[in-house]
Amino acid sequence: MTTTAVTKTPQQHTDDLLLVANDRDRDAFSRLFDHYMPLLRAFTLSAHPGSAILADEVAQEVMIKVWRKAHTYKPEFASASTWIFTLARNARIDYLRKNSRHQSDIDPEYLWSEIPAEDGDPFQAALQKRSADVVQAGMSQLPDDQRLALKKVYLEGKTHKEVAEELQLPLGTVKSRVRLALKKLAVSIKR
């Protein structure tokens, strides 16, 4: 079951995910496990530092979801990483809902879909692919302060308000850093 750590390209993860979807291929699943399990653990740990047990649990839950839901994955819309990130994000939302922060009668299942939103057309798929490429290319060019703001929002799961408090910056500064970063990543936002 053990595979040595070799750097894989995004396309290989996507291929592996399709092998899991179509052939229930356990070797492919094992490769996905080796790549994503550490990322999934790190994702939980950045929001809940020190919670190793929680990180294991959530990562395990997401990997089982990968196995169970692989047939709903649509490679024309998103890379394997994007799809698995949405599973991890949704697992985090579920966890927060059951514990303290989001305690709510609102069922998140209805609010966040896994990419893509259903019944997307080929044109949408092409747009998505293109914007994903732009994001990928632009990410490494971001100044540190903008990148840090994005990281806090996405990985640590903090709202803009919480990031501002933690960095002791005015809320407006955090917002403008995020906006500048998004602008560079070609996320054109309507106002």
């Binding site: 550490p38 990483s81 994000r89 939103a117 998505q128 990410m139 994005l150 990281k151 990985l155 936002i189």
Partner: peptide, 22 residues
Amino acid sequence: QMSDTLVHVGAQLFESQSLQLH
């Protein structure tokens, strides 16, 4: 469309997490 792009942003950050920390 924007929201999907913002998910790609998250996925990029997710994929490029530094694992040495953990």
